[in-house]
Nucleic acid binder design. Structure first.
Length: 553
RNA sequence: UGCCGAAUUGUGUAACGGUAGCACACCGGUCUCUGACACCGUUUGUCAAGGUUCGAAUCCUUGUUCGGCAGCCA
């Protein structure tokens, strides 16, 4: 009851019972990305299901590049994909494969099918084939269907030998031209493509189609459960047809699950690429991107993504999960583990009128109240500090209980101060806030026990470092920019990035390393940018803000 | 309209013939040296109509709605 099984696990449980299909066997899955783009948060769900299910049953999961189409794939994505998966904490030991490793075997299986009278070489052009596909009431047609086996054999060998140009002919499975399932209307299983492949070079000029290749890849690797997304559901009969008609020892089972959608973003590679090309984002790893490398650069942790994926559940209805849930999972993880620091994003000077000029002192500040072992650090304090401009209002709004003339607040871990006045420039902007401090409140507690409603963060103006802060917002202004009847580019959020140059940071942050994560008190969780941050020029990305229940007016 | 699949609160899911539960979001409150975290609470749901049954989200029938397939993509 604690954690109920999803429908895939229920199926596996059944099959594992005595007499079941995989009784006594080790559960074996695979994650088969096509190396033509970067992994995104949607893949994290597939990773969770493929690797996670294997782990749960103490089984194995292979990583396999599904590289059967040389026009789309490239080696450049392979390493990035491996890195992202490792980053998430999954591993495949020595079971890393390319579908292209099986090209020779696939070819032999194709010959087997021809010999069994279950495949034939068809000379229809792509246009002709489409025209002869038929419709819901009319069966498809191929004039080459009853070609003698010997002839198909000869032609198929010559296809491989490179005698024919692209598109000239195909190898088709002989199944059912009248099937209501169009995937079964004698699907093409080999096409000619005179293009070098990123792995096999010019060795081949014919390439197997997914529907033929995938079940073979699974069968050859001893995969017991081939878990894939819903759009392959109507391909399952073909998957089964292939494994049942070729000579393989194990017959894997395909089970489909719903893809993950997420609000306020798009996940199609095409659309993500278009946003890069349009300059809306800076690249695949732009911190606003839903790619794994983008989320990583933004400050997301593997644990947060893992929890998100695991808690979304597995079903057969396509779902769109609220982005807020992903954010929740990040806060949850970082709240427990992130080092705290004080950083003033939009500074205004606070001058303590009754604090001795030129003097200074140190306070101990907790590194993480959620972690007893995190210890404390020293923070210096002097007459002039930086505070958040939002933490002062000359004329306070209702229910505002931070700094305003006459009000007391606590400076985190330091003193209680009382606001007395503020300075303005010629335009009326506040240039400095004046206050007095209560010397008896050293450390933050009042001597007379009076309650201080608000505690604000601060930075010593005489001992701090400057930094650049990048604040991010949703990429799209609407929950589902992906909906069919609209153009997603119309909903780009023009304010998805705000750059703050002159933030004032606690001194120790100057030693920050790329990808270090912090909670900046009261403003959110931040991550040192992996590309742009250096000790000379600190750059922090806000991964997610803290929740804020203060609502003006 | 051929074939396949799916419908449980705003969102995502659980309940497998026996009290419709959980998480996020929302709203309200308690607590607080982070208006965070934590804790407590309110509101909101079984697509529809029939049927079987002592009892139906669950089984049956019909209907409705939504998604997928009809690339020499995966």
């Amino acid at each position: 009851m604690a954690d109920s099984k999803n429908f895939i696990e229920q199926i596996i449980d059944e099959e594992l019972k005595e007499g079941g299909r995989v009784y006594g066997k080790k559960i074996h899955t695979r994650f088969p990305p096509e190396p033509n783009g970067y992994l995104h948060i949607g893949h994290a769900k597939a990773l969770e299901i493929d690797f996670g299910t294997a782990e749960e049953y103490n089984g194995l999961c292979n990583l396999r590049m599904d590289d059967t189409n040389p026009t789309k794939e490239d080696e450049e994505f392979v390493e990035a994909i491996k890195e992202d998966i490792h980053w998430l904490g999954h591993d495949w030991d020595d079971r890393f494969f390319y579908a292209s490793e099986y090209f020779e075997k696939m070819y032999e299986f194709a010959i087997e099918l021809i010999n069994k009278g279950l495949a034939y070489v068809c000379e229809l052009t792509p246009d002709q084939m489409r025209d002869m596909r038929g419709d819901t009431k009319t069966p498809a047609v191929s004039p080459y269907r009853d070609r003698p086996i010997e002839e198909s054999l000869d032609l198929f060998k010559r296809m491989r030998a490179g005698e024919f140009e692209d598109g000239k002919m195909t190898l088709r499975a002989k199944i059912d031209l009248a099937s209501g399932n169009f995937n079964m209307r004698d699907p093409v299983i080999y096409r000619i493509n005179h293009l070098p492949h990123h792995r096999t070079g010019t060795e081949w000029c014919i390439y197997p189609m997914y529907d033929f290749a995938h079940p073979i890849e699974d069968a050859l690797e001893g995969i017991t459960h081939s878990l894939c997304s819903l759009e392959f559901e109507s391909h399952r009969p073909l998957y089964d047809w292939v494994v049942n008609n070729i000579s393989v020892e194990t017959k894997p089972r395909q089970i489909e699950f719903a893809r993950l959608g997420i609000t306020h973003t798009v996940l199609s590679k095409r659309k993500l690429r278009a946003m890069i090309e349009a300059g809306i984002v800076t690249g695949w790893d732009d911190p606003r991107m839903p790619t794994l490398c983008g989320l990583r650069r933004r400050g997301y942790t593997p644990a947060s993504i893992h929890n998100f994926s695991a808690r979304n559940g597995v079903a057969k209805v396509n779902s769109v999960v609220d982005f807020a849930f992903l954010e929740y999972c990040l806060r949850e993880d970082l709240n427990d583990h992130a080092q705290r620091a004080m950083a003033v994003l939009k500074p205004v000077k606070l001058i303590i009128d009754n604090y001795p000029e030129g003097s200074s002192e140190e306070f101990d500040v907790e590194n993480n109240p959620k972690d007893e072992n995190a210890g404390t650090r020293k923070v210096t304090f002097s007459r002039e500090l930086w505070i958040e401009s939002e933490d002062f209002m000359e004329e306070p709004a209702p229910k505002y209980f931070r700094l305003f003339p006459g009000n007391e607040v606590r400076l985190k871990s330091a003193y209680v101060v009382k606001c007395v006045s503020c300075d303005h420039d010629a335009d009326g902007n506040v240039t400095a806030v004046h206050c007095t401090y209560d010397p008896e409140s050293r450390g933050g507690n009042t001597a007379d026990g009076r309650k201080i409603k608000s505690t604000i963060h601060w930075v010593d103006a005489n001992n701090c470092v400057d930094g650049e802060i990048r604040l991010y917002d949703r990429l799209f202004t609407t929950e589902q920019p992906d909906l069919a009847d609209c153009n997603y580019l119309d909903f780009i959020n023009p304010d998805s990035l705000e750059v703050i140059k002159g933030a004032k940071l606690e001194k120790f942050l100057e030693n920050t390393q790329p990808e270090d994560r912090f909670q900046f008190l009261r403003t959110g969780y931040f991550c040192a940018d992996s590309k742009d941050s250096s000790p000379e020029h600190l750059v922090f990305n806000r991964a997610v803000s803290l929740k804020d229940s203060y609502k003006p007016e």
